[in-house]
């Protein structure tokens, strides 16, 4: 299992949700949170696939967050 921790100061929670929705057909994904982070736990059939899906999900969430932050200015 891979755990991604998205800090609330840096990522918009909605973008993390949207990233999960986009990638949930490629892996089993659980969402959790603590005081500082949105947490995504992800597992896939094979480690290389799991690494790739986790990485792309992170990039997707970052891209959406940046788009929203620049769009808001």
């Amino acid at each position: 299992m891979t755990e991604l921790r998205f800090h609330r100061d840096l990522y918009d929670g909605e973008t993390v949700d949207e990233a999960i929705k986009t990638f949930e057909r490629f892996a089993t994904i659980e969402r959790a949170e603590d005081d500082e982070h949105w947490i995504v736990r992800l597992s896939a059939d094979a480690p290389p696939r799991e690494r790739r899906v986790a990485g792309e999900l992170g990039n997707y969430a970052l891209g959406l967050t940046i788009r929203r932050s620049t769009g808001a200015r």
Partner: peptide, 11 residues
């Protein structure tokens, strides 16, 4: 870097 790397930001 997102075309070449997986990127994650944290505090």
């Amino acid at each position: 870097f997102i075309d070449r790397c997986f990127v994650l930001l944290d505090r």
